[in-house]
Amino acid sequence: MPATPIGDPAAFIRAETRLLAPPHVPEIRLHLADEAIGLWHRTEEELGAMGLPPPYWAFAWAGGQALARHVLDNPAIVRGRTVLDFASGSGIVAIAAARAGAARVVASDIDGFSLAAIALNAAENGVAVEVEGRDLLALGSDGYDVVLAGDVFYEKPMSDKVEPFLRAAEARGATVLFGDPGRAYVPKTGVEAVAEYTVPVTRALEDGEIKRTKVWRFV
């Protein structure tokens, strides 16, 4: 069978993933990679040539699963509010916010494949999620009552931009929460954990099969 052209993101995602329920958020179904390393290695070079990051959108990372679980279990966080899911990846957190009763949900990511995955996943779960492809790190997060982010502190250059962005949202009055399983560059001061979960993950891309993952806020 010929390979699906990578130039058609939606068709590529449909062909190269399966609809699966993330183990910590079984209420949600996502287009996820069934065989992690195969898709990662096969697409990394092609995506890189297009100026795009690896297929982060094809996996349910620990921080996103924990944050989605927290939102579903505590719907008052987002109910009736305008929500931004920053660096959304698969859209798992955005979908959770929509299911929990948010008035409006916007999922942002600069990866066009991620935006296609979010649209497919939102449709699969029967929720309305808007996609935003502009770089919000440069534009800011005005207009959002809640800002959510899962697994955004995985490398230093990204973290150096994301932390001020999230703190600025919190300073202007937004509720800001982020999920993180102890990545190297997660903020060490001025934060507190509001919840902790044991999240099953893909061992092929992590250092174990379970990640103790916290949902954090700034203080």
Rank of each mutant, 00 (worst) to 15 (best):
A36R: 10
L52C: 01
T43C: 14
L39N: 01
H41N: 10
L52I: 13
L47F: 14
G51T: 05
L52N: 04
A58P: 02
G63F: 01
F59D: 09
G51W: 05
D34C: 00
A49N: 15
A62I: 04
P55C: 02
A36Y: 08
P55R: 09
V71D: 12
L47Y: 08
E35T: 14
E46S: 13
Q65F: 00
A36C: 00
M50W: 05
G48Y: 13
P53S: 06
T43A: 15
D34G: 14
L39A: 02
M50V: 01
A58F: 09
D34I: 06
R69E: 05
A33V: 01
G48S: 13
V71A: 04
H70F: 14
E44M: 13
A62F: 08
A58Y: 07
H31R: 01
D34E: 15
V71M: 06
L30K: 12
L32P: 12
L30V: 01
A60P: 03
F59R: 07
F59G: 02
W40C: 06
P53K: 02
I37T: 07
P55F: 04
A33E: 13
L32H: 13
W57M: 11
A49C: 13
W61S: 09
G51H: 09
E45N: 02
R42V: 03
W40I: 11
W57Q: 08
M50D: 09
R69T: 04
G51M: 05
L39M: 08
A33K: 00
H41C: 06
E35Q: 14
E46A: 15
A33I: 06
G63E: 12
A36L: 09
H31M: 09
W57P: 00
A62C: 12
A66K: 01
L52G: 10
A33T: 08
A58K: 11
L67D: 03
V71K: 01
L47S: 13
L72H: 06
M50Q: 14
L67A: 08
A33Y: 04
E35N: 15
L52M: 13
A66S: 05
A66Q: 06
V71Y: 11
W40N: 05
D34K: 11
G38S: 13
A66T: 00
A58W: 12
G63Q: 02
D73R: 11
P53D: 09
A66I: 09
L67R: 08
L47C: 05
E46I: 09
A60E: 08
A66P: 03
P53Y: 05
P55M: 12
A49S: 15
G48C: 14
L39D: 01
L52H: 06
D73E: 15
R42P: 07
A49Y: 00
H70L: 04
L30Y: 11
G64T: 07
L30F: 05
D73K: 09
Q65T: 08
E46R: 14
A58R: 01
G48Q: 14
E45V: 12
E44P: 12
A58G: 12
I37G: 03
W57S: 02
W57F: 11
W40Q: 09
A68F: 05
W61R: 04
I37E: 02
H70I: 06
